[in-house]
Design a protein around this nucleic acid. Structure first.
Length: 421
DNA sequence: TCTGGGGTCCTAGGACCC
DNA sequence: TCTGGGGTCCTAGGACCC
């Protein structure tokens, strides 16, 4: 029997955060709006009871919501990030086996607490509420997927008092029989439709399905999900967060944008924000992608959603470099005559940033720096950017090459660089 | 006129190498 | 005359998550 896993999930997190700082909101229906006040992204229970849906466009429900006496807040992500850190800190006092899964959720390993799961979970709920003001629900199961089901059940059934334990098979069966396929973590509309088309219509049907057949038809992801529903863990706790693989900054415009200059201004702001994120994470980007989008909700208007990227000769976190590349891409993508509604910059190919690398992009324009940049560029051209990427770090004569270690060209490119430096 | 902003993982298929 | 096959890497696109 595997050790139980708990999923702790903050109730209506953004709405609860707003309530902590404004007690007048307590007990009232409240909604939190997205950027630009575009749509509803969080609702208190009272607001849910009024039938306000997740993701509802604000301009379509504004009038109705106001007549219902609902309190409205624009989102404040700095506040939510801060509250999240506090909640996670409290949880960390309960176990070292803590995986912070999202801004408002964490998985906890409960090995050693098998005999007092209920006490443990209820005292955890009480402590989080007491120390942060945020109400949480707890679901416990032998796998992450069942812990998710348990959490959902705890939230939907007031009688459970915020806690549902699905360790026994009968309890699992009962909980699964009360939900739909789409309620399971990892199943959304498309997969649910395909499953139903072959006769798997409920979570219990899915649990009984042959994992190998599921793998053949749907892939390894769904096979794991079936095994997890049966109580066989396929997803362990990830205790140390993996480094980010990409960073994205994008926004919808409040109104359609048509001029290149305006897009370029937006891109400047995004580049700066992206560079900040890079530096905060100690990362440098090896590639820059820019994308544009027209209004996808207006199929009657001409649609255009281009994107393109550019490899950077040296991985960097320098705002000016990102912006230069971004603008170059933007000029290539831009076509006049379209009404753009959204734009963004994506930075993939992230690698750890190092001090010398900082020196490389930040240092004065010395002949040494120029010749090194030139050499890196030449080597990159010779081998193709997919093979060789460079960052500098303060080893071996001041420069170290990082690149795809499995690449055939690694050794050659490395010796070329060393011979230059 | 007004419809969020981030992310991850997997797969298929092509290019290329030996 | 035999007309390979295993492996890596990359990209695009799909699907899903909060």
């Amino acid at each position: 029997m595997s050790a139980p896993i708990a999923l702790v999930d903050c109730n209506n997190f953004y709405a609860s955060c707003e309530r902590v700082f404004d007690p007048r909101l307590r007990g009232k229906p409240i909604v939190v709006l997205s950027n630009n006040d575009g749509c509803v992204i969080a609702r208190s229970n009272e607001a849910k009871a009024l039938g306000i849906a997740m993701g509802e466009p604000w301009h379509l429900c504004k009038e109705r919501i106001k007549t219902q006496g609902v309190m409205v807040r624009s989102s404040n992500y700095t506040l939510y990030g801060d509250m999240s850190a506090r909640v996670m800190e409290v949880l960390s006092h309960f176990t070292p086996l803590l995986e912070v899964y999202s801004i408002d959720e964490a998985f906890l390993g409960l090995a050693g607490f098998e005999n007092r799961l209920e006490d443990y979970a209820q005292s955890l709920r009480a402590k989080v509420q007491q120390w942060t003001g945020i109400p949480v629900s707890v679901g416990i199961g032998p796998t992450k997927t069942l812990a998710k089901v348990a959490n959902r059940t705890a939230k939907k059934t007031p009688a459970y008092n915020g806690l549902c334990i699905l360790i026994e098979k009968e309890a699992q069966t009962k909980a699964l029989s009360a939900i739909e396929l789409e309620d399971i973590w990892g199943i959304a509309r498309r997969t649910a439709e395909k499953l139903k088309a072959i006769g798997i219509k409920t979570p219990l049907d899915l649990r009984q399905a042959d994992p190998k057949a599921i793998r053949r038809n749907f892939g390894v992801v769904l096979e794991r999900l079936v095994l997890e529903l049966c109580g066989l863990p396929c997803h362990g706790l990830e205790l140390s967060p993996a480094p980010k693989q990409s960073i994205c900054v994008s926004r919808s415009f409040g109104r359609p944008v048509t001029r290149l200059e305006e897009l370029s201004e937006a891109l400047s702001a995004y580049s700066e924000r992206a560079a900040e994120k890079l530096r905060r994470n100690g990362l440098a980007a090896g590639y820059v992608t820019v994308f544009l989008q027209t209004n996808r909700f207006r199929p009657d208007q001409p649609q255009y959603s281009p994107s393109a990227g550019l490899a950077l000769p040296v991985a960097t976190a320098d705002t000016a470099t990102l912006l230069r590349s971004g603008n170059e891409i933007l000029r290539a993508l831009y076509k006049p005559g379209f009404r753009y509604k959204k734009a963004g910059i994506i930075l993939p190919d992230l690698i750890p940033q190092t001090e010398t690398q900082g020196a490389l992009w930040g240092s004065p324009d010395t002949p040494e720096r120029q010749s090194l940049l030139g050499a890196i560029d030449t080597i990159n051209r010779r081998h193709g950017r997919q093979t060789v990427r460079f960052a500098a770090s303060g080893v071996q004569r001041g420069w170290q090459m990082r690149c795809d270690q499995k690449s055939r060209n690694y050794t050659t490119a490395w010796s070329e660089l060393v011979s230059v430096t």
